[in-house]
Simulated assay, not measured.
Amino acid sequence: MTHTKDKHQQPYSRLRRILLILLKVIMIIALAIVLFIGIVYTVNRVSSHSEMQKLESYGQLVSVAGKQMNVLVEGEGEETIVILPGFGTASPALDFKPLLSRLKSDYKVIVIEPFGYGLSDQTDKERSTANISSEIHEAVQSLGADRYILMAHSISGLYSLDYVNRYPDEVEAFIGLDHSVPSLSEQKVETSDIVPVKWFRNLGFARLQLKLGDNPYEELPYDEKTQEQLNILIRKNMYNDTQLNEAVSMYSNFQTAKALTFPADLPVLFFVQKNHPVVHEWVSEHEKQIVNSKQGEIVLLEADHYLYRSHSMEIAEKIKDFMESRM
């Protein structure tokens, strides 16, 4: 009888041992994951603190809507150019440096760092086009600029479409740097979609993501010091709350912009990448924006979306020619 009982217990004992082994494996994996997250979180906190000690200020702070917005002003030209950044640009003032260095000999150049960008404060205010336009205008006005050329990269082209219609007596011309057009809308982002992104950021995985990615400024005309500061600000501002709120508002901003066009008598100059890697209608939709413009021109460049980084000389020379032809 004892022998029979042992035979029945053997499969059960083996199953129990297997389950215990599996449980131990699961616990080890779980502990390894927790340890990995802890290391990533700690490294991010320590590194962020260290980097803030190395961060150097630039530009000047102006009061906008009760907060501080950073702007950079360079050049002594008679005409003024106001530059607006694309979505997520960590430091507009430093990112536009190659183009800025080409423009400042002929123009006074103002680079705006909207809330959530560069050294500017963050804000809880809705990132609607109307609010963003109003904030930019307040910053420009605080600098005493009353007539200027508006230049915008990427999503700021959408905000500029509102801006030039809102403040027509101030904007002399518009220059688009591979700017967004209303007909090519971004996908809708819900508030719930950004919750996991905040966890990803808060736990320090954004830093790890950047570490595993390529250096966007490699082999471009940025000195080592500028690259160091840019990389610090990328890690500082990546996925911050203000920019995530802007992402949530982006779809509705595109829809609102569909009712707007550039004024027919406003000179407009577009620099557009010739071969968009995804959107085949990229050039044709930009062409539609100037159909009714009395002074409209498109320059196609063999470049990526950040064409001002690699083609600053061509862009600066064309801007000068275009503006002089208006006189």
Results as ranks from 00 to 15, higher is better:
residue 155 I to Q: 02
residue 98 P to V: 15
residue 164 V to F: 02
residue 173 A to F: 02
residue 60 Q to N: 09
residue 87 F to C: 09
residue 238 M to P: 03
residue 252 S to Y: 05
residue 207 R to L: 00
residue 272 V to L: 10
residue 162 D to K: 04
residue 252 S to T: 15
residue 52 M to C: 05
residue 293 S to T: 11
residue 195 V to I: 13
residue 306 Y to D: 15
residue 208 L to C: 06
residue 203 L to T: 00
residue 296 G to M: 07
residue 74 E to M: 09
residue 286 H to S: 06
residue 205 F to E: 01
residue 122 Q to R: 12
residue 117 Y to G: 02
residue 325 S to T: 12
residue 190 E to A: 08
residue 100 L to S: 03
residue 82 V to H: 04
residue 178 D to G: 05
residue 71 V to N: 07
residue 327 M to Q: 14
residue 205 F to N: 00
residue 206 A to K: 01
residue 147 R to G: 06
residue 92 P to L: 08
residue 239 Y to V: 01
residue 24 K to M: 12
residue 21 I to Q: 11
residue 88 G to I: 02
residue 157 G to R: 02
residue 248 V to D: 03
residue 244 L to S: 06
residue 266 L to Y: 07
residue 76 E to H: 12
residue 41 Y to N: 10
residue 175 I to K: 00
residue 213 G to D: 01
residue 202 N to W: 03
residue 206 A to M: 02
residue 165 N to E: 04
residue 125 K to M: 10
residue 244 L to Y: 04
residue 168 P to I: 10
residue 233 L to V: 09
residue 310 S to N: 10
residue 65 A to D: 14
residue 222 Y to F: 14
residue 190 E to Y: 01
residue 300 L to T: 14
residue 72 L to P: 06
residue 19 L to M: 12
residue 54 K to E: 14
residue 313 M to N: 12
residue 278 V to E: 12
residue 186 E to W: 08
residue 205 F to T: 01
residue 263 P to G: 13
residue 6 D to H: 11
residue 283 V to D: 08
residue 327 M to I: 14
residue 63 S to P: 05
residue 231 N to T: 11
residue 253 N to Y: 05
residue 248 V to I: 13
residue 53 Q to F: 05
residue 193 D to G: 00
residue 216 P to R: 03
residue 20 L to Y: 07
residue 252 S to D: 15
residue 244 L to G: 01
residue 142 S to A: 15
residue 30 A to M: 10
residue 47 S to E: 03
residue 314 E to V: 03
residue 305 H to T: 08
residue 113 E to V: 13
residue 238 M to V: 04
residue 20 L to R: 14
residue 113 E to T: 11
residue 317 E to H: 03
residue 69 M to P: 10
residue 5 K to V: 12
residue 307 L to D: 01
residue 58 Y to L: 12
residue 70 N to M: 11
residue 197 V to E: 00
residue 155 I to V: 15
residue 235 R to C: 04
residue 165 N to P: 03
residue 150 L to K: 00
residue 153 H to S: 11
residue 51 E to C: 07
residue 260 L to N: 08
residue 81 I to H: 08
residue 273 Q to A: 12
residue 175 I to D: 00
residue 318 K to M: 03
residue 73 V to R: 14
residue 116 G to F: 01
residue 313 M to R: 02
residue 132 I to D: 00
residue 246 E to Q: 13
residue 214 D to S: 13
residue 181 V to D: 00
residue 123 T to W: 04
residue 140 V to L: 05
residue 308 Y to Q: 06
residue 84 L to H: 06
residue 265 D to S: 15
residue 52 M to I: 08
residue 205 F to S: 00
residue 214 D to I: 07
residue 275 N to P: 10
residue 40 V to K: 10
residue 30 A to R: 07
residue 88 G to F: 01
residue 121 D to R: 11
residue 96 F to N: 06
residue 309 R to E: 13
residue 265 D to E: 13
residue 136 I to H: 01
residue 6 D to A: 10
residue 266 L to I: 14
residue 118 G to C: 11
residue 191 T to Q: 05
residue 21 I to N: 13
residue 243 Q to D: 04
residue 138 E to M: 06
residue 53 Q to L: 13
residue 118 G to V: 08
residue 292 N to K: 15
residue 102 R to G: 08
residue 40 V to M: 08
residue 261 T to W: 02
residue 215 N to V: 09
residue 288 K to G: 15
residue 198 K to E: 02
residue 124 D to A: 14
residue 150 L to W: 02
residue 172 E to C: 04
